[in-house]
């Protein structure tokens, strides 16, 4: 469980990070909390030659307002998102979702940016961010661009970020919507077997495909006036869950329906 040799660089600004990425190209990887990347490196499933540690970049950490959005720096730790009074007041869904990530040690190290950039469909935060239609700001050498959540997750462990970009922040709407996050785990502290986030009329699912996805059929059924239990039955439409030691794809489909129904009911009750 020892990673292949690598060089470690600690950078103090986004510009330095971008310069380093440009210099080392494909050999380099950004390191934030290290809680997804380091395990992969220990198995030598990832063998970057250079690690660029961005976790100390002050401008990447913290929560601010911008218009009617909440802006969360990419290197903000899960624990900050979980406990921040601002996030708790303006975006309970996000604070609550962060509180379910791993255990306290993981939340004290892992970052929201690392969690989304890792692109694992069983991660918690991406599912809620997708339900909220969050906006992801990426910075490259040629400036910044905004990527909509719906376009951000591309494939298994793949996102729309290019290797030369740094994710700067994530913007979530301030609108107070009814919300719920349902996470099914076999043991209390674990990755989701399936998860379901509800935010207003949006429903998103985790671990039901190679990326977090929206349950569009549920959403449109609700808009057309279907009741919750009927709409929830559509939760597994257009999903492609995998089978593994925790659950078969059929069981995941069932869980998606159950969690979505529970989520919709809980969200309604919060109204």
């Amino acid at each position: 469980m020892i990673p292949a040799p690598f060089t470690y660089l600690r950078v103090g600004s986004v510009q330095e990070a971008l310069d380093a990425l440009a210099e080392y190209g494909d050999d380099a990887k950004l390191l934030a909390g290290g809680h997804s990347l380091i395990p992969l490196m220990k198995y030598r499933l990832a063998t970057p030659k250079v690690l660029i540690d961005i976790s100390g970049i002050a401008e990447l950490s913290g929560v601010t307002f911008e218009g009617d959005s909440l802006v969360i720096g990419a290197a903000t730790r899960h624990a900050i998102v979980e406990h921040s009074p601002v996030v708790k007041e303006h975006c309970r869904l996000l604070a609550y979702t962060a509180s379910l990530v791993g255990d306290p040690q993981v939340r004290n190290r892992g970052t929201i940016g690392g969690s989304v950039a890792h692109g694992d469909s069983a991660s918690d935060l991406p599912v809620s961010l997708l339900a909220m239609d969050a906006q992801f700001t990426a910075q490259g050498r040629n400036g910044t661009r905004t990527i909509a959540a719906a376009d951000f997750f591309v494939g298994f462990w793949q996102t729309a970020l290019t290797p030369n970009e740094v994710l700067i922040n994530i913007k979530v709407p301030l609108a107070k919507q009814r919300w719920s996050y349902q996470k099914f785990t076999i043991r209390s502290q674990d990755w989701a077997t399936v998860s379901s986030a509800v935010y207003g009329n949006a429903v998103a699912l985790g671990a039901m495909a190679d990326i977090p996805i929206r349950a569009r059929d549920v959403e449109s059924a609700l808009l057309q006036g279907a009741d919750i239990s009927q709409a929830a039955l559509l939760a597994d439409h257009n999903t492609s869950p995998s089978s593994d030691t925790r659950a078969s794809s059929d069981y995941r489909r069932h869980l998606a329906r159950v969690l979505t129904e529970d989520g919709l009911r809980e969200a309604l009750a919060r109204n």
Partner: peptide
């Protein structure tokens, strides 16, 4: 082996 680490091999913790 398909349960060769503590992600896949499900040892419980106190809350379980």
């Amino acid at each position: 082996p398909i349960t060769s680490n503590l992600i896949d091999y499900l040892i419980p913790s106190a809350p379980d």
